[in-house]
């Protein structure tokens, strides 16, 4: 989740998750009976929904179906001929080891960034809710990576991680010169760099949500626990965190989708390299969409696969979260 982008908006949304997202998705909510009685008195609202519905559902479903259609062709775009190829694009993708390593990279990225976001977000949020000097400055420092575009920050990250970069200078300064290496340019560490940059841009978002969430926790509950002799960490992990589970679930969905659609920062940092070691679905689709030897059929087939994964995983996460969540 780079940037408070659409993803963030979604997080916000999803954050409501526990209370709002899952609740909002569970219709009809409040006072079902009452509502049924009034329902005939309510004016029709279709016209009110339509503008938003047409723009989003219209455009997006259209794009999905169009992608589905294109995925059965081989097409260089523009005035090149469109050659129907059946399921060849799909078979080619599923048989491509780079695709599977992209999936693997996505999973690694998701797990690492999600973990960092939850732990980092909770700890920072808790600290900022404690009496701390200059809390506002810390907040801004942590949130800057979230609000500034990854495209804008990528050149800075390259400067940090290149062989002659800030990180290696720091290692040398700490007497760890033997550990310096070309972080961006090695197959074994390129994914690490991309992932760390992802964590860097995500902790602040977890922080914003947990910080807002913690403000809603009843102080009396904490006081009671404290009187019972619970320590700081104990309170944090046995009372606060479970209370914010909804946020955590939302972050899980959000991060998964973010990992699936990751593009900007990877493309600008490593272009998926070296030797495809940091390839993600987003970079593969982009390369097929924008490269000289592009095949839009292959790009759209990958997109269709991406959508299927995104929808099925989010549905699974939500269903499981709903099963477990105590219905209030």
């Amino acid at each position: 989740m780079h940037g408070l982008g659409e993803t963030s908006a979604m997080t916000v949304t999803t954050t409501g998750g526990g209370s709002s997202l899952l609740a909002t998705l569970r219709a009809p909510r409040r006072g079902g009976q009452n509502r049924r009685r009034v329902i005939h008195l309510l004016p029709g609202g279709l016209a009110w929904i339509l503008p938003g519905f047409i723009i989003s559902v219209g455009l997006i479903y259209y794009s999905i179906f169009y992608a589905g259609y294109l995925s059965f062709f081989e097409w260089g775009g523009g005035r090149r001929p469109m050659i129907p190829v059946g399921a060849k694009n799909y078979l080619q993708i599923l048989g491509d080891p780079i695709f599977w390593s992209a999936i693997f990279n996505t999973i690694i990225y998701f797990v690492a960034v999600f973990t960092a976001q939850v732990i980092g977000g909770v700890l920072f949020a808790a600290a900022m809710h404690s009496r701390i000097f200059l809390a506002n400055i810390y907040k801004i420092i942590i949130v800057i990576p979230v609000v500034v575009a990854p495209a804008t920050l990528a050149p800075a990250h390259i400067q940090v991680w290149q062989t002659d970069g800030t990180f290696n200078h720091i290692l040398e300064g700490l007497g760890l010169g033997f550990f310096t290496q070309g972080w961006i340019g090695q197959s074994t560490t390129s994914l690490l760099v991309v992932t760390l940059v992802g964590c860097w841009g995500s902790v602040g978002f977890g922080f914003i949500l947990y910080y807002a969430g913690m403000a809603q926790i009843d102080p009396e509950m904490l006081e009671a626990a404290r009187i019972d002799g619970a320590g700081n960490l104990r309170i944090l992990f046995s009372i606060v965190v479970p209370n914010l589970k909804a946020i955590t679930v939302s972050l899980a969905i959000l991060n998964f989708i973010t990992a699936l659609k990751l593009f900007d920062s990877v493309w600008l940092l490593t272009q998926g390299g070296p030797a495809h070691s940091s390839e993600f679905l987003g970079t593969m689709i982009y390369a097929e969409t924008a490269g000289t030897s592009r095949n839009l059929g292959l790009a759209t087939a990958m997109s269709v696969i991406l959508i299927i994964i995104a929808i099925s995983v989010s549905v699974i996460i939500q269903l499981r979260a709903r099963e477990r969540a105590p219905v209030s």
Binding site: F53, V57, I64, L70, I257
Partner: peptide, 22 residues
């Protein structure tokens, strides 16, 4: 409402090729 929510999962990269043609 659910139809709309499905669109939550769509990455913008997927839009590029179809939108471009459109």
């Amino acid at each position: 409402f659910w139809m709309m929510m499905v669109a939550l999962t769509l990455p913008e990269i997927v839009l590029i090729a179809p939108l471009y043609a459109t």
